[in-house]
């Protein structure tokens, strides 16, 4: 038992090290959201939205977490599959659940750090003044939502061709972010687009924090939608992985 624990912990640590060393992670999840934040809060006022900087910080933090979970995570899983690493692990005593669990746990820990860094950078530089409880709840919402995108990343990672995965993940990342209103608020979109946005997990990721900073009541069904997406992605990827292993 303690052996499994020790192995899982070592696996978590290794996954965290690998993520932090990954340049794509640093670019997509920290530099790009931070740059977008400064550009769009510097040049626009969000159509007169009174807490535009806070609103956009929530959008960009979500955007960063989605990128980490979707783009870097999926490609790593796919590469490990293509390079035979997963096969090699299957003949070690490491339980296969421990591999997935430590990946998710490590990414979860990384996402906490990522949210803190972006909140601090944006909050301090633009003097965003929010109650501590709002910071915490908004951060937790984004963090929890991150798991739905990890599950999507895991699903993309079941494909062996990591170049295809990279392209597909990037397209999904950008389109989901735009349609879900992470780049531009959905309120600035035509009605039809606003309706479509409600179906995206990216919109649901921002929905809670946007309500929180505006002092509006929080619609908890948003978390429910994210949970449904997560379960759906997990079930499909578990099914595909089982099929791939049964050779």
């Amino acid at each position: 038992m303690s052996q499994t624990y020790r192995a899982t912990w070592a696996q978590c640590r290794a996954e965290m090290l690998r993520t932090i060393r990954n340049r794509r992670f640093v670019f997509f999840s920290i530099l790009m959201p931070a740059a977008f934040f400064f550009i769009f809060t510097g040049t626009m006022d969000g159509g007169g939205m009174h807490n535009w900087a806070a609103y956009y910080l929530m959008s960009m933090t979500s955007y960063g977490v989605v990128g980490a979970s979707l783009v870097t995570f999926s490609q790593r899983v796919s590469r490990e599959r293509a390079q035979g690493w997963i096969r090699l692990l299957r003949m070690t005593p490491l339980p296969s659940g421990a591999y997935v669990l430590s990946k998710a746990a490590a990414q979860g820990a990384i996402n906490i750090g990522l949210i803190l860094v972006l909140f601090l950078t944006g909050g301090l530089s633009k003097s965003i003044d929010l109650p501590a409880s709002v910071w915490i709840e908004a951060g937790l919402w984004i963090w929890a939502g991150g798991f739905a995108f990890m599950a999507l990343g895991m699903l993309l990672g079941t494909m062996r061709n990591s170049d295809v995965v990279q392209v597909l993940a990037t397209i999904l990342y950008m389109s989901l972010s735009i349609v879900g209103g992470l780049w531009m608020p959905t309120s600035a979109m035509p009605q039809i687009m606003q309706t479509i946005a409600k179906f995206t997990p990216t919109y649901r990721m921002g929905q809670g924090p946007w309500a929180l900073i505006g002092g509006q009541p929080v619609d908890w069904s948003g978390i429910g939608v994210l949970a449904v997406y997560m379960i759906l992605f997990m079930v499909v990827s578990a099914y595909i992985m089982k099929k791939q292993e049964a050779v």
Binding site: R6, A7, A10, A14, L17, T19, Q83, G84, L88, P93
Partner: peptide
Amino acid sequence: DTSVIDDLKVGETIDLFRSYY
């Protein structure tokens, strides 16, 4: 046809495997 794991050093990779046993 097994390659190595990305973004880990040689010593770290070996230590990771040692932790399984």
